[in-house]
Write a protein that binds this DNA or RNA. Structure first.
Lengths: 178, 178
DNA sequence: CGATCGGTTGATATGAATCAACGTGCGTGG
DNA sequence: CCACGCACGTTGATTCATATCAACCGATCG
């Protein structure tokens, strides 16, 4: 379980293309799948300094069978992971670059907000534009253009690893969240 | 659980865009998530005539806690669903139309082959080109062009709800599976 | 001080979308 | 039994979103 920092789960293709499959924040399991099978199947990549905790696979399985609440909590975690994957599929399949980026920002800041106190909509945001590109199936050049546009429209501020949302309403409209 | 036929799990966007999130074949659970929560969250759509079986949510949960093998089998199902979702994310994020279509064909025929006897690499394949487009984030027009190209190259035959793979080797190369 | 990394910007290329017309098979109602 | 409409696919012309290539900038770091 990740206790501190940011981690990506990634797939690296033969020819250098990279796809980030999910972003882990403090409190997330590295992989619910890893609890059952030895192989991680994809690799992980730390974006920041990181702290994490280990569990014994068999202990956890035993505890889940013994304790129904833990079992349900774990099922809930799996369901959330799945929902996030579905959302990403929809983004990649059917939304354009502006929508994708607006949604990614809102999705991540939402998750950060669940974990830490946020003041004045200013979030720690260590993703590079290149990372956003590799989540969203775009190039970093294009991400830069869209972000610049958002910035010029006064929607966000984004520098030095921090992101501030100036107009959440308009950003949500751009992402078709309304 | 689906017993016979083909079903899509889909997301329908406000403006008519559709994204198919997964394709269910005989033996698949409609949603591993549905076992824990009431809401299906997305909708399902039958592509063919269909037969299915129902389980009582609570019976199944009880059985899983009581029977470790069932528990593991279920975990395995979840893991497979997850892997398929990851693959789709990689396709949508980082592969072009030819790769996507070649991979979809190989993925589906592989799954069909696990379930039925296949003669002369000829598979039942009720997907319309429009459905493939909605899985792969393309338009049906573009799918048509690529399929026509595959056909002219002698890679596949595809008509009347059947698909035959003439040159699996070359198709796999196109999909970067080799 | 040079090297490297992340980001910006412009010019150009390209894959896929869009628009449009047409064909063909099929089911259905008259 | 025919005529019509509809679903699905094909094909061509054109447009558009995003990629690619390239130059450059500022910050950071050894």
């Amino acid at each position: 379980m990740l206790c501190y920092g940011w981690v990506f789960r990634i797939a690296q293709l033969g020819d250098g293309r990279r796809q980030i499959l999910s972003v882990l924040l403090a409190g997330d399991l590295f992989s619910s799948r890893m609890i059952f099978s030895e192989s991680a199947e994809y690799s992980f990549q730390a974006l920041t300094h990181v702290r994490f905790a280990r569990f014994d696979r068999n202990d956890l399985r035993a505890a889940m069978v013994a304790n129904l609440e833990l079992f349900d909590a774990f099922a809930q975690v799996c369901a959330n992971e799945r929902r996030a994957a579905d959302e990403l599929i929809i983004d990649l399949g059917r939304r354009n670059a502006e929508e994708r980026i607006a949604r990614l920002i809102l999705h991540l800041t939402g998750r950060i907000g669940e974990r830490t106190i946020v003041r004045e909509s200013c979030y720690p945001f260590p993703l590079r534009q290149n990372d956003m590109a590799d989540i969203l199936g775009l190039t970093s050049v294009h991400v830069s253009r869209v972000i610049t546009k958002f910035r010029k429209a006064g929607l966000i501020e984004y520098s030095g690893g921090n992101l501030r949302i100036m107009r959440p309403q308009e950003l949500a409209e751009l992402g078709r969240l309304i």
